[in-house]
Amino acid sequence: MEIYCDNAATTAIDPEVAQAMLPFLTTHYGNPSSGHQAGRKVKLAIDQARATVAGIIGASPDEIFFTSGATEANNLALSGTIMTYEISHVITSKIEHKAVLQTLAKHEKEGDIEISFVKLDERGNIDLYHLENLLRANPRTLISLMHGNNEIGNITDIHAISKLSQRYDAIFHTDTTQTIGKLRFDLKEMNIDFLVGSAHKFHGPKGVGFIYINKNQRIKAQILGGGQERGQRGGTENVIGIAGLAKALEIANRDLAANHNKISKLKQYFISKVSIAGIPDICYNGESKSVENSIAGILNVSFPCLSQGSIVKKLDQQGIFVSGGSACSNLTTAGSHVLNAIPCEKDKENVRFSFSKFNTFEEVDHMIRSISRIYHAEPSALLHAAASK
């Protein structure tokens, strides 16, 4: 039995999405920049997709630009803002995605900016009082703070941050990769300048995303040539992906309440089951255990270390696919920069389980049984965990 429980890394394409993409793989293959009828049909599909995304998040179609994904969108927002407005100070946190942190670190190394890191509490939540103090001391700054953390699931109050950004004339960029399609947005109610999304996080295709650029902001393009996306991003549009993104977001918005309810129950069910599985000294990182303060699908659990091997690898061998951190962190041996930035028990193995609408309660039961068998096959790990309590 194979179980995929790494949906914060990527999700399966919804069958409805695959069906919506099919015509652009077969009959609607014109170049949207072409003036003939075949091109105009495809251009119309892009325009319709743009209107769909805009309508769902409360934006205008001319504020939506399609990209290759959230990484490109984050780079565009940050580098574009720094270069266009000659921003010299940026406020961020140490638990942002590396697409944000590495982009900012590059600009800092080149002498473009100074970075201030806002304080975090013991669960990884943003200290809004410290943020306001930083804004007060640094007028006309750029804020880059994510809405939902991809490893520990924490949800940041972007409404409050948008008010602070307006009060102190700051530019506000938020990485919403993990929350688009899972929480409702109305950008008419917030002072947000840049917001990003990636289709493969909400059951759409990989390799396509979007950026919202507030109509009051216009930044320098990072990819030149062709003038596509109204000059903001050169290159022939990924029409197949754009059609899939719009359909995936439409479905996610349509079924948002039902999906949220089911996924929340899956997480709570996992927590209740693992608590009686006989594995001592389990704890949860960040706000991931909280129903109110975390993304419904993300649960980050600290398990006792095994005497040999990794629980993530042992589960993988049994056909259960979870993550030891964010998918990008798995490519290095440095560990999770998110968990290193907040208090957590360093002598434990941290495992991220991330659920989707396609997971089942039966799969949770199977995962718990597998985890229990792994630990009970290594009594030394259980004894060590019990002794350390």
Score class of each variant (00 low, 15 high):
179 T>K: 04
324 G>Q: 03
305 C>M: 13
304 P>Q: 01
229 E>K: 07
79 S>I: 11
233 R>D: 02
255 D>R: 08
259 N>M: 11
79 S>H: 08
184 R>G: 01
241 G>R: 08
275 S>M: 09
19 Q>P: 00
322 V>C: 14
234 G>F: 02
207 G>H: 10
174 T>Q: 10
290 S>V: 07
372 S>A: 13
369 R>L: 11
381 A>R: 10
335 G>R: 00
177 T>Y: 06
244 G>V: 02
230 R>Q: 10
93 S>M: 06
49 A>S: 09
352 R>Q: 15
199 A>H: 06
226 G>D: 10
45 A>F: 05
129 Y>D: 07
36 H>N: 15
269 Y>A: 06
175 D>F: 08
243 A>N: 04
273 K>P: 01
160 A>C: 04
19 Q>D: 09
366 H>Y: 14
291 V>M: 01
329 S>E: 15
120 L>D: 11
267 K>V: 08
298 I>F: 10
201 K>H: 09
272 S>T: 15
341 A>Q: 12
75 N>I: 09
285 N>W: 01
18 A>G: 15
215 K>E: 13
118 V>C: 15
251 I>A: 02
92 T>A: 11
301 V>N: 12
212 Y>H: 14
32 P>Q: 07
342 I>T: 01
266 L>Q: 06
209 G>C: 11
285 N>D: 07
73 A>I: 06
83 M>Y: 14
166 Q>S: 13
148 G>Y: 01
209 G>F: 11
353 F>C: 03
195 L>Q: 00
17 V>E: 11
316 D>C: 12
24 F>Q: 06
297 G>M: 08
320 I>V: 15
67 T>W: 04
85 Y>H: 15
351 V>N: 03
179 T>D: 04
45 A>G: 07
363 E>T: 14
389 K>P: 04
292 E>P: 00
58 G>Q: 03
176 T>N: 13
33 S>H: 05
362 E>G: 05
260 H>C: 02
346 K>N: 01
157 D>I: 04
379 P>A: 01
379 P>N: 02
160 A>N: 07
270 F>K: 13
157 D>P: 07
325 G>M: 13
350 N>M: 03
295 I>V: 05
15 P>M: 01
138 N>E: 05
65 F>Q: 03
32 P>W: 06
149 N>M: 07
302 S>W: 09
359 N>E: 13
380 S>F: 13
134 L>H: 03
